[in-house]
């Protein structure tokens, strides 16, 4: 179980990385922490000509604190968030979810940007970042573009990267003081792939009410205006206003036909709401 031979490059900055990506005569792969790509390389599922290691690029490990949001470089790790080496603006949502990603040894190298780009539907970041309304910024030959994180995943293992583009940062909005969030994932064992994920954000001050049904084998189901499911966020007990019937309909409308899958995903969402708290 050893990778094919490949060239390796360690660019000093994003510009140099993009220059390497521009060579369309080669199969070029970007690697950040390598915790998803590493296994695929070992198994020869991925056979690049050139591996571009972006984990040394300073810009991608920077954190920019803005009035309404915070911007994480793509190479911020799960452990950086879990240990709060980077500020938390989500009332504990991101550190709490980070703590449940795979295993500690993986979290010490695995990155937010890498996870989102790997686009595994069962991964945590795509679901929780969709719930809090994060955006990703991609840089390529045509400059930067910023899109909602849920639009970044096209399907299983497929991110919306145009030729020559790479993910450079993730922008997370600062949640309001009375914001509440919840996250529940169903795994067969600790640290393994989730089979159902439910997540929500209720942030009445910012007028945000979002619901995510994740681990669907494809893109997560994201309801960006979820008032009909969880109300406007002013109820004391959100679980009492949660409309599980409407959630089941939303899931069915999204094409999930298997009744057991529908059930577990509705329950995951309901439990995310039941366990909601404001930090």
């Amino acid at each position: 179980m050893k990778p094919v031979n490949f060239d390796y490059a360690r660019p000093a900055d994003v510009g140099a990385a993009l220059a390497l990506l521009a060579d369309d005569t080669l199969a070029v792969k970007i690697m950040a922490g390598g915790q998803s790509l590493g296994p695929m390389l070992n198994m020869r599922l991925v056979q690049p000509d050139l591996l571009v290691d972006i984990a040394g690029i300073e810009e991608l490990k920077q954190v920019t604190d803005r009035p309404d949001e915070i911007v994480f470089g793509a190479c911020i790790t799960h452990a950086d968030i879990e240990d709060r080496r980077v500020p938390d603006v989500t009332r504990g949502a991101l550190p709490s979810v980070a703590n449940g990603i795979a295993y500690r040894a993986v979290r010490n190298r695995g990155t937010v940007g890498g996870s989102l780009t790997h686009a595994d539907p069962s991964a945590d970041w795509i679901s929780i970042l969709s719930a809090v309304g994060a955006r990703v910024t991609l840089r390529g030959p045509a400059g930067n573009r910023t899109i909602a994180v849920e639009d970044y995943m096209l399907g299983a293992l497929e991110a919306d990267l145009r030729p020559g583009e790479m993910l450079v940062s993730v922008t997370v909005p600062k949640l309001g003081r009375s914001a509440r969030w919840g996250y529940y994932k169903s795994c067969r064992k600790t640290g393994e792939f989730a089979h159902a994920i439910g997540a929500f954000l209720s942030d009445p001050e910012r007028g945000v009410s979002r619901v995510v049904i994740g681990a669907t084998e494809s893109r997560p189901i994201v309801v960006t205006d979820a008032q009909h499911l969880i109300g406007d966020g002013r109820a004391e007990r959100l679980d009492r206003v949660f409309d599980s019937h409407a959630a089941a309909e939303a899931i069915a409308a999204a094409g999930m036909a298997d009744p057991i899958d529908r059930q577990t995903h509705v329950v995951a969402l309901r439990r995310a709401i039941e366990r909601a708290y404001s930090a």
Partner: peptide, 8 residues
Amino acid sequence: ALGPAGSG
């Protein structure tokens, strides 16, 4: 430090 352990 931030970022993947071992890198940088």
